[in-house]
Amino acid sequence: MVNFIIRRLFAMVITLFFISIISFILIELPPGSALDAEIARLQALGGNLNLSQREALEERYGVNDPIHAKYWKWISNAVQGDFGNSFQYNMPVTQLIWGRLGFSIMLAGSSILFAWLVSIPLGVYSATHRYTIPDYVITVLQFIGVAIPEFLLALVLMVTFESVGGLFSRDMETAPWSFAKFVDLLEHLWLPVIVVSAGSTAWLTRVMRANLLDVLNQQYVQTARAKGLKESKVIWKHAVRNALHPLIMTIGGVLPALIGGDVVASIVLNLPTAGPVFINALRNQDMYLAITFLMFFSLLLVIGNLIADLLLAWVDPRIRLE
């Protein structure tokens, strides 16, 4: 198992390396550079820039360097933890992203947890009570959950519960971390969690139901019954564990999807997460900020996949390697 993890970590580094090259090229592709924005900013401050000053700036920022030189400059600093400066905010990228990424990961983690805690029992109930009225009710709720747009659900919930969004009360927003602030966070967290996870919860419930129905037809479920086990144990021990695979695999994909996909919800709910800042960075060609977010999303994707693989191996011995 240790061997497997080491190999996977090695593969992760290589994957990230290729992602960095591709995303760097993509972000460099559009015409114009962030320097234009910087120059515009300096011009707005007053003072005209003459050509030599402009060339000096271009020289300083390496705008005219060939792309591989730029890439090398950026990546060699990045691996040392220096991701460059944001032109937009005029401060180091590292100062900008941590807090936002932290909230994003927390929101995504809580959403996955919420989705599992709701979808597994609901899916199991739905499968074991197929074609009964509760099953139909759950099915209808699932369709609503999948179909409703996030922003609409966010607005409806905000109006219904008279919330103004955000993750903190106004007086707590800038306060240093304390237990009271944590409690305040929990009081606000549930609404974005429901908004962000509604779709995946509904979808996972459906997957769980379908999968369990499949597994319940398997011979080994009958074997477990023939052994004299309680029906609840037959379902929860022998059947559910064999139906969990797709739910576990969701960690791999859902983690970055939740972080990237919570943009709309974050804007509507006024959340201090990574999504809105990332979109802004892309629109303003704030390339170092954008590519840093991109790299972290990629990192989360590969980590998510690794976690999913490890969990799968833990649940199903057939996947265990060696």
């Binding site: 398997q218 011979q219 080994y220 009958q222 074997t223 477990a224 022998h238 564990r241 064999n242 649940v315 199903d316 011995p317 057939r318």
Partner: peptide, 12 residues
């Protein structure tokens, strides 16, 4: 049962 391939639970 008939199918020894499927009558044992694969995860235990």
């Amino acid at each position: 049962f008939q199918e020894p391939m499927t009558s044992l639970n694969p995860v235990f």
